[in-house]
């Protein structure tokens, strides 16, 4: 019979680096997590109320025309037949300034703090690569801007159809309007979002990014207006100079989609869409070059 082994004294345990054994959710999940976090940060979620005030105000500002438009239609259309309050082109034109301010609010908030607090190397040392980071930020900016361009317009569309005597038939009859809303909403969102992200990628200070976005907006608007006036006789030059202005470009897009030419640009739809897609592609190229220097 052997004596029980005496408890060992001074044993060394291997408590070293352990490999992660949990589920691996993959790159797609990492990109989506970063995009979700960026959206929450931009909207001030899990931050003091003071950080939420501006996004909430902007959402309210963009929804007021929708509510007023549907309300007027509901209560006054019986009294004033033939009156068509808040058409879709009017709506997109009216909320464009708010969308611009919204992008100036969210885009710097998504990119600048990462640069200022020097956490980019931390991101890039983990599962997220540089192109993933760019993709996540573009996705976040695009989705949030969609929430002020596409969502309110869709609510307006639904509201208008619900006021019809037979909503389901009205919805079927006006599906083409919904398609136009989708094209305009998505294009405007990514057009503005991409420009905002590019400007914000150049600085770590949010105030500088906001200032440059606003300055760029004013500069392009005013120069486009002044040059259009100066080249009034030259029809071709006037058309192309109009594209310098984001307001007139989007007004032309919406106007052409609903066959109510606006913005002083009398170009066919493919040309306007081409210009907007071109701006988005250039912006994506610039931001890719900013964050993926070796590519």
């Amino acid at each position: 019979m052997t004596a029980p082994a005496a408890p060992r004294y001074g044993e060394i345990y291997d408590r070293g680096y352990q490999h992660y054994t949990g589920p691996r959710l993959g790159r797609r999940h990492a990109i989506w997590a970063l995009a979700r976090y960026s959206m929450a940060r931009a909207l001030g979620i899990k931050k003091p109320w003071t950080a939420k005030v501006i996004p909430i105000l902007l959402y309210v500002a963009v929804l007021i025309p929708v509510v007023v438009g549907i309300g007027i239609r509901a209560f006054l259309s019986a009294l004033l037949p033939g009156v068509n309050p808040l058409d879709y082109p009017e709506f997109f034109g009216g909320v464009f300034l708010i969308e611009g301010i919204f992008v100036a609010t969210i885009a710097p908030e998504m990119l600048c703090p990462d640069r200022q607090e020097r956490v980019l190397p931390l991101y890039f040392s983990r599962a997220i690569t540089r192109p993933d980071y760019v993709l996540a930020k573009l996705l976040a900016a695009g989705i949030l801007t969609l929430s002020v361009s596409l969502v309110p317009a869709t609510i307006l569309w639904i509201g208008r159809q619900l006021l019809e005597p037979s909503p389901l038939t009205a919805m079927r009859d006006h599906l083409d309007d919904l398609g136009r809303i989708a094209v305009a909403g998505v294009l405007i969102a990514f057009y503005l979002g991409a420009v905002g992200i590019v400007v914000s990628s150049f600085t770590g200070r949010k105030s500088i990014a906001v200032g440059v976005i606003i300055l760029g907006f004013l500069l392009t608007e005013a120069i486009s207006g002044a040059l259009t006036f100066a080249f009034e006789e030259n029809e071709r030059a006037r058309q192309w100079l109009g594209f310098l202005s984001p307001t007139r470009t989007t007004a032309a897009l919406v106007g052409t989609l609903w066959k109510q030419p606006a913005g002083g640009i009398d170009a066919p739809l493919p040309a306007i869409v081409g210009v907007m897609l071109g701006v988005i592609v250039v912006c994506v190229g610039v931001i890719y070059w900013r964050y993926v220097p070796d590519a």
């Binding site: 003091p48 501006i54 100036a104 200032g211």
Partner: peptide
Amino acid sequence: PRALLVGII
């Protein structure tokens, strides 16, 4: 906190 944006609005 976001005084610049408040000012711009």
